[in-house]
Amino acid sequence: MKDSLSLFNNHPNIWRAREQPANTSRFALGIHTLDEALHGGIPSAGVVSIACTTGIGEVSLFQQVISQQRKHKLRVFINPPAHVCAPWLTTQGIDISQVLIITPDNDADALWAAEQCLKSAACHCVLLWSKTMAAKTARRLQVAATHNDALCLLFSLASKKPSSLPVSLELSLKAHEANLTVDILKQRQGWPVHNLSVPFSWTPDNHAIQWAIKNNKRKVHSLHSVS
């Protein structure tokens, strides 16, 4: 009995919950509570799967990772839901000359392109929007990404049934008022965390105006005040 267990005990890829998370290279998201839950950020290589509705700031959440890390490498958008807007990229601090947008005709081509990009050693991260993702293809992307030290952000629509893709990190995002609710469904070398609520703002808003209206009440100065 003891012998059969020692195989597992000595296996370097098996993480035991009593251990501290291994010191793998990570990219911080810049949001303190989230980074803490993720033990310092998202892994610097591998596939991060994000399940959410389009338009709740799911790309902007990774703004710091996309724009600040490995600046000399490409950021590739594959199969984005609509035209990627160039001024948005510059607002995010992304060097626009390092952006490649790929719009393949079908999902198979998209996966092919993603794998080529990850394998090329020329890409910092690949942002892939995919409707269907089988475990096998996710595994391929994961291997291509980890071997070439690249990041793959895999965006898919939120689904009820829990998926179990062989990826480094699985997140589920929901917008709730001014906060973003993050579920860490699966992370390597760590426990899942649910309902983590982080304040998040990803568009310009009218706060400045509202603040100005509230605080700069026009004072009526009378020239001849009678006290």
Binding site: H72, K73, L74, V84, A86, P87, L89, T90, I96, S97, V99, L100, I101, I102, T103, P104, D105, D109, W112, A113, Q116, C117, S120, A121, A122, C123
Partner: peptide
Amino acid sequence: FTHLAQKQLIGRLKAKLGEQSTQLPALG
């Protein structure tokens, strides 16, 4: 090397997916 790898990657993607499918955006 990355520069060369980038060019090779772009060449490869364009060859397989067509010129229109692989684009480098710029500000208008």
